[in-house]
């Protein structure tokens, strides 16, 4: 059941998670975070859980990235005004 493809996705998800924590720019961090969501979507779809995969694709990859990006835009604008 666990083949090489899944192992590659798992390892890249772990690397992306570490990168998301240690990234200097917050924008990179958000992109690595959404990459984790994409990997989780593929893994759920392979593991025959399409319902969970749909939820992860809609919420974890789409909505959370959108909300984080808009939050980042708002907060970075405030920083520019202060400095």
């Amino acid at each position: 059941m666990i083949n090489i493809f899944m192992i590659i996705i798992m390892i890249s998800m772990i690397i992306a998670a570490i990168k998301a924590i240690t990234a200097v720019k917050l924008l990179d961090s958000i992109f690595f975070f959404s990459f984790i969501g994409i990997g989780a979507t593929i893994l759920f779809a392979i593991m025959k859980a399409p319902d969970v995969a749909l939820t992860e694709a809609a919420v974890g990859t789409g909505l959370i990235t959108l909300v984080f990006l808009s939050t980042l835009r708002k907060t970075s604008k405030e920083d520019e005004h202060e400095s």
Partner: peptide
């Protein structure tokens, strides 16, 4: 597969 939550979020993605 899917349902109210997933479809609702997708249809809301249109308005987003």
């Amino acid at each position: 597969p899917g349902g109210g939550f997933q479809g609702g979020v997708m249809a809301a993605g249109m308005v987003l």
